[in-house]
Design a protein around this nucleic acid. Structure first.
Lengths: 247, 247
DNA sequence: TTTTTTTCATAACGCTGTTATGTCAGCTCG
DNA sequence: CGAGCTGACATAACAGCGTTATGAAAAAAA
């Protein structure tokens, strides 16, 4: 009896909808707080208050703080993919590969707190990636695998597994970026110095010659500004750091 | 009048001392909880209750949860140094270098949650490393710098900055270990596969030949059990993972 | 024994994410 | 138009967190 009533009304009634402005305000405010003040600034009460709502808005729109952060993180993956999509496909596949490394680092430096959740295993407002999330986020790696294939076919890298080569690049650049964001790399071996040496070392390690590698690394450095740093993937989840990291 | 009294008694009065058994119980319990249940299990109430105390014991012994974690982290640095000190000094400095990489990874796998605080920028129970802590923790890197010097002098690595080479090794292995601990590395490019390839790639990238590198990596693998995995730096802060990570 | 000092149990504070409750807003239908 | 229905969302409360405040208890010296 009661069940029939519910079925009839489910089809026909379109009750109150959530205010779309509230949802986007919550995301924008959360992003700003994270960028300006870091993870501890992110609380349901703080975000809701600045949006002029109660904390219930976080629950109805996102299911809770975890849902809000989840959305932010997926936007972070999309941003990385956008940066990668702007890396050109040139006659020098090794330079392209190195530019992917630069794009990866640029993304992390632009959104450090999000990066820590995306790839650093960090937890934010109680949210940690699920296994599914993690494997989803790896889709950006296909760009690197495809580029490694081109490097192998061009004879610059040893014949071998392109996916494995891509993993070597990824894990190494991830390590440098993580330590950089954590302020572990100081003069004389600061982050820029180590990064440049590592880019060369990585491609030589998988088969390139030192001379060719040096040229490709240099060429990729010249392309950085135009192909990567000029990219605006959308309203910045986290603002560009106030101090320029590149002299 | 009152001040004179205080001075007299400061010298002579030895009032109640904290119970040393409480202090060590708190550390052991915290370590066990962290290892068995992860970071969210670490709360002042939980740790104190299992030690048969109130949370005030955490404050009088350690100044708070941060102090407790700080002590655990410094013990983590000491453990890494112990592992490193067991890496022998052989006629093959590149094999020694690679074994440092293996020791580093072994330490991280043995104490993953602590590792995340030591080098991963993670915050645990509200504790994050200070700049001073971070630079202190880098003292373990001197082992690697010294080994890089030997590799350069032996002609295995290109002439260059040994400290920079050590940073290249460190950042790359750190990256792999971090992603491994985060469960990002899956078949076919699982952590072991990428790690072995990366070890070879890194030393080739700084000047070794592929043939010599392959031999040194292989030799270091044979030394792992005896020089590193047999090392017991003390009661484990975190127990060995239940499932063997090495087939 | 008394005095002094510190430890530490207990209670309370201010914060967190979240749930419970009931009012309000928005929509459909007669 | 009003009635009824449904979900949004304000408010209060819950249970947990680290920490501080308070005073009793423990330990040591004189």
């Amino acid at each position: 009896m009661k069940k029939i009533t519910v079925l009839c009304h489910t089809v026909k009634v379109s009750p109150r909808r959530s205010n779309p402005q509230t949802r986007s305000a919550l995301v924008d405010i959360a992003a700003r707080l994270l960028s300006d003040e870091g993870p501890q600034a992110l609380s349901a009460r703080r975000v809701a208050a600045e949006a002029g709502s109660s904390t219930m808005a976080v629950y109805t729109n996102f299911g809770g703080m975890s849902g809000l952060v989840h959305d932010m993180v997926y936007e972070g993956f999309a941003r990385l993919e956008t940066y990668f999509s702007h890396v050109g496909r040139t006659a020098d596949p090794v330079a392209d590969m190195v530019l992917f490394g630069r794009a990866y680092r640029h993304n992390a430096l632009t959104n450090p707190h999000l990066y820590a959740v995306m790839f650093g295993g960090a937890s934010l407002a109680g949210f940690s990636l699920t296994a599914e999330d993690r494997q989803y986020g790896r889709y950006t790696l296909t760009n690197v695998v495809e580029c490694a294939t081109r490097c192998i076919e061009a004879g610059r890298f040893r014949t071998g597994d392109a996916e494995l080569v891509a993993h070597q690049m990824w894990t190494a650049i991830h390590g440098l970026v993580t330590l950089e964001l954590g302020h572990y790399l100081i003069d004389p071996c600061n982050a820029d110095v180590v990064f440049e040496a590592q880019l060369t070392g990585l491609v030589v390690g998988v088969g390139d010659t030192l001379e060719a590698a040096t040229r490709s690394v240099k060429a990729s450095r010249r392309r950085l500004k135009k192909e990567v740093q000029s990219t605006r993937p959308g309203p910045s989840v986290e603002e560009e750091p106030a101090s320029a990291r590149r002299s």
